[in-house]
Design a protein around this nucleic acid. Sequence first.
RNA 1: GCGGAUAUGGUGAAGUGGUUAUCAUCUGAGGUUUCCAACCUUAUGUCGUGGGUUCGACUCCCGCUAUCCGCACCA
Length: 554
Amino acid sequence: MVDEQRLERLNGMLKRRGFLLPAFEIHGGSKGLYDFGPVGGRMRSKINQAWIDHWLGLGNVVELSCPTVTPYAVLEASGHVGEFSDFMTQCGSCQEASRADSLLEAHHPNPDALKRDELQSLLEAEKPPCPACGMTDWSEILAQNLMFNTTIGAGASGRPGFLRPETAQGMFTSFNALYRHFRERLPFGAMQVGKGYRNEIAPRQGMIRLREFNMAELEYFIDPESPADDDLSAWDTVSFALVPDGKKPVEMTLEVACQQGVIRHATVARFMGITYDFLAKVGIDMNRVRFRQHESDEMAHYAMDCWDAEIEGSFGWIECVGIAHRGCYDLESHEKATGKSLRARREFDEPRTTLVDAWTIDGATAGPAFKALAGQVKATVEGLPKSTTFPATVALENGETVVIEPEHVKPNQRTLKETGEWYIPHVVEPAFGIDRIIWHVLDHAYAEQEKNGEAYTVMQLAPAVAPVDIAVFPLFEKEGMDDAAAKIHQRLCGRPGTVSMYDGSGSIGRRYARADEIGVPQCITVDHQTLQDGTVTLRERDTGEQVRVPMDSL
RNA sequence: GCGGAUAUGGUGAAGUGGUUAUCAUCUGAGGUUUCCAACCUUAUGUCGUGGGUUCGACUCCCGCUAUCCGCACCA
């Protein structure tokens, strides 16, 4: 299925033409790190921008840019420190590193679930032999993390931190600023494109698994109690290839998938539709896209539903987008860790009133009687049922027992009125692996054709992602044609967002071929006639057709 | 991380324990050419890296790094 020779030719071309190159190659290179070259750099930024523009279409999202350097506490709260770690220990005799939980498998039913300290004491108690040399001299257990760790600040004041493994956490920790910005009305979203870092044990398959990668994520905050009435009618005519959890692939519209409960949440369905449109816009072959639902055992424990967009390319089916309904997990985690509220308010249709009919203390007598304990006494008394009779002997929160006399208490009757409540919003998160998408855009656009019996390659890139928008050629670099072409090139380059390329070397056919190979959609050629009547030929990449147009109309 | 393969101009390949490493292509310059990798002249640019063996290593040996393929890991 995988055509390895085509893959090699494609990789060679991408390197030769400056799309993708191994980073720091003159120093020997580094695994999992790539450069977007003179051609690829522009393409990456166009795809990033296209992604932002596409999702801005929701109308209620903003763009953020958060630091990549992230304090330890943030990623501890998010669960990354725990989830992304292996606990390693080193043999003092042969230096072989082993996973502590593997060593202790014989001594504990589930060592994977233990914390570092528990593993440490178990390791010291059991002294398992080193699988390499049989000795039992183990070093202290260290968390070997898949995140790049670093120190924020110098010397003794330095605090531990990581390079972020995803962009999402900065958006969660910014929730209160977002809430104010959106006038305290949900739903709303925040998105960002940027770098993420994972110190992969074995980066593989070129752009598919990198140590530093480009990602684009949207965190869309919703009220779990308001009905998900997302409009799916825009995709009524599109049959989606779906692979539901543990079932056979099916094809159906988003509307039907929602009605049948295949997709569990309408917002997830709508984002699948928007994702579909984005992939089509940047030139992915939509016949090679499917959406696969995470099976319950691979889904993160907090997620309520998760669909991956998978794209088929030279490496088979690769997950390129994840659309996850994450529930309230993230905001709740940061709330717990910081004690800060990350909530939204929901007003009730009707204010809710509750009648309180119980006891409270009489401050004038109970205060002097209980002094420092008065606060605890008050809390305890207010928790007593109305039927309590005094004097009563009660246990306080701190364990002390006190006797409460009738003169210490008085009836407490009042009406509590609540007009609304605070809740933790739920989050639907589309997360895009931009590098993987760029790879598949290139993979799908790469067309090996034949021209006059010779191999001919064209990058059939969509104009939205083409690294060069237009190329300008003088038919010959003399007799003023070169000057005329240079002027047109300058004028086009002066336009915001337009990249023009001037090329005057080699035969005209060679220049068309070079332009085709990096996917320039249109080429302009200046010839003798241009000098007389101001017209040029405009050539379309995909059809080869040429039309003569006045150069002022460009 | 384990196992296997590989590493020669920008790209793709050949080759050798001993003078100046070969070929194609690409790229630059000049010429020619009135629109799709044409042609002529000419130029630039290479043995991944560190050690060892040797009078001499791009070639043989070892380590490292990188790439590709399995397995494992990861999403």
